[in-house]
Structures are given as C-alpha cells and as structure tokens.
C-alpha cells in the first residue's frame, strides 16, 4: 500500500483535545467531527486538507484521552496517514482499529517542511522524501495491512 501526499507538520505532544475538542463529542458523526479537527491548535485546518495528505509530527502524538473520535476526525478530513516520532498508546491502538494507517519515524519530522510531498510504502516501510532521501520505518505486519485494507478491526474480525 503506497500513500503519496502533501505533508502537514505538527510538533510534540499533540493531544486529543487539540485533535478534537471535547465540546464536539456530543456526536460521533465523523463528518461533523472532521470539521472541527485541530480547531484550537490550527484553526481552519479541516478546510485546508487535500484528500490523501499525510501528517508528520513529533513525539507522543495523540496523548490524553481515549476518544476514538480523534483518529476518526483526522481520517475524515482526508488525511491518509500519520507518521510521528512516537504515538501515545491508546491513540495508536484506536487509529489502527479504525483503519487509519500510522507509523513511527523519529527522523522524518526534522527532514521535511510543511507542504512537501512525500510517499510512503507501508508494505516495505520506505519513505521517499523530497531531494531523493529514503527513510525506513518498520513495515506493517500482514495482519495490520489486512486491518487497514478492510477499514478497521471490526470489519477485519467480521471477515475472518
């Protein structure tokens, strides 16, 4: 699975309240959630995102709450993948469970700038950066690729 897209950069410790403020959690409609994604930390983000884009972030992305609304909101803005130096554990679980591919690279965020276009091959774990540099991340194990391609953990379980 290859994802090519424009990069949006974020820093360290991006928390779930920044990703989707709790005041919008009186619904679980992903389209409504997506409209408010990153609203407090980067107003207007949801309107900017080109479908198929990639978030590149620093350490501990998704820290805070267990709300699955956070990866759902990101996914429904059109973001196709998140690559962070590290993820908070509940966020990592939730993203995979809803079929949003995410992976860890400690180098990426420092090698690229906002708006760069990169490509990541989840099967081989190769990231092609601007200027020809290639970074490696652990390839997705087969079962995780299957979860992603079926759209999440529950569809995956149903298909077993």
């Amino acid at each position: 699975m290859i994802i090519k897209g424009k990069v949006y950069k974020f820093g360290n410790d991006i928390n779930t309240d920044e990703i989707i403020p709790a005041r919008y959690l009186n619904t679980s409609d992903p389209e409504i959630l997506a409209k408010h994604c990153m609203e407090d930390t980067r107003p207007g983000f949801a309107d900017l995102v080109e479908p198929g884009s990639i978030i590149a972030a620093g350490h501990n992305f998704g820290c805070g709450s267990s709300r699955e609304h956070a990866p759902l909101a990101i996914k429904h803005t059109g973001i196709a993948c998140i690559i962070a130096a590290s993820f908070a554990r509940i966020f990592f679980r939730n993203a995979i469970n809803i079929g949003l591919p995410i992976t860890e690279s400690a180098q990426l965020v420092d090698r690229i700038k906002e708006g760069d276009r990169i490509s990541i091959d989840l099967d081989s774990g190769k990231i092609d950066c601007p200027g020809g540099e290639v970074l490696s991340v652990p390839p997705f194990p087969e079962f995780m690729r299957a979860i992603i391609s079926r759209g999440g953990w529950l569809p995956y379980l149903k298909g077993l």
Binding site: S66, R93, N94, N97, L154
Partner: peptide
C-alpha cells in the same frame, strides 16, 4: 487500562 471504542465493541462481542 484505557482503550478505545472499537476495543470496547470487541469486548462486548
């Protein structure tokens, strides 16, 4: 430990 809604759905099932 905290988990997400999908994990909880798996627990229900």
């Amino acid at each position: 430990t905290g988990v997400g809604s999908t994990d909880f759905a798996g627990f229900l099932l």
